[in-house]
Computed example of a mutant assay.
Amino acid sequence: MKNKRLILILSIVGMLLLVPLLAMQFTDEVKWSGFDFLVMGILLTGTGFVCELILRKIRKPSNRLILCLAVVGTLVLVWMELAVGIFGTPFAGS
Score class of each variant (00 low, 15 high):
56 R>L: 10
30 V>A: 02
20 P>L: 00
11 S>V: 10
10 L>R: 04
42 I>Y: 08
64 R>W: 13
81 E>P: 14
85 G>E: 01
25 Q>N: 07
4 K>N: 03
58 I>Y: 03
85 G>V: 03
24 M>R: 03
8 L>K: 14
75 L>M: 10
35 F>A: 13
91 F>E: 00
40 M>F: 15
7 I>A: 14
27 T>K: 06
23 A>R: 11
69 L>G: 05
33 S>M: 07
38 L>H: 07
62 S>Q: 10
52 E>D: 10
86 I>L: 12
6 L>P: 01
20 P>I: 00
45 T>L: 13
64 R>K: 15
61 P>V: 00
9 I>L: 11
63 N>R: 14
37 F>Q: 05
38 L>K: 09
48 G>P: 03
73 G>F: 04
45 T>D: 01
1 M>Y: 09
77 L>W: 08
88 G>L: 04
14 G>C: 11
79 W>T: 06
82 L>G: 07
66 I>G: 00
29 E>Y: 15
71 V>F: 08
67 L>H: 04
39 V>G: 01
52 E>G: 03
78 V>M: 08
12 I>H: 06
51 C>I: 13
84 V>L: 09
79 W>L: 07
31 K>D: 11
85 G>K: 06
91 F>A: 02
1 M>L: 10
42 I>S: 03
27 T>W: 06
84 V>M: 14
36 D>M: 06
3 N>L: 13
84 V>I: 14
57 K>A: 02
15 M>Y: 07
68 C>E: 08
72 V>D: 01
22 L>E: 08
86 I>S: 03
21 L>V: 09
14 G>Q: 06
30 V>I: 14
66 I>S: 07
32 W>T: 02
68 C>R: 15
66 I>T: 11
70 A>W: 01
69 L>D: 02
71 V>N: 05
37 F>V: 00
93 G>V: 03
30 V>H: 05
72 V>M: 13
81 E>V: 11
22 L>M: 11
41 G>K: 09
73 G>A: 08
21 L>Q: 10
4 K>Q: 08
37 F>K: 00
19 V>W: 01
37 F>I: 04
21 L>A: 13
28 D>G: 15
27 T>R: 06
10 L>Y: 11
74 T>R: 01
76 V>F: 11
35 F>N: 12
40 M>D: 02
8 L>P: 03
34 G>W: 09
83 A>I: 05
48 G>Y: 05
56 R>M: 08
62 S>Y: 07
35 F>H: 14
22 L>W: 10
42 I>G: 04
2 K>Q: 12
27 T>H: 05
14 G>V: 05
17 L>P: 14
68 C>N: 10
26 F>G: 12
30 V>M: 08
84 V>H: 15
51 C>P: 02
22 L>A: 12
82 L>I: 08
16 L>I: 09
31 K>I: 04
2 K>I: 11
30 V>Q: 03
73 G>H: 06
37 F>W: 07
18 L>G: 10
3 N>G: 10
19 V>A: 12
36 D>S: 07
49 F>K: 07
56 R>C: 01
73 G>E: 00
84 V>A: 12
85 G>A: 04
54 I>H: 01
23 A>W: 01
63 N>Q: 13
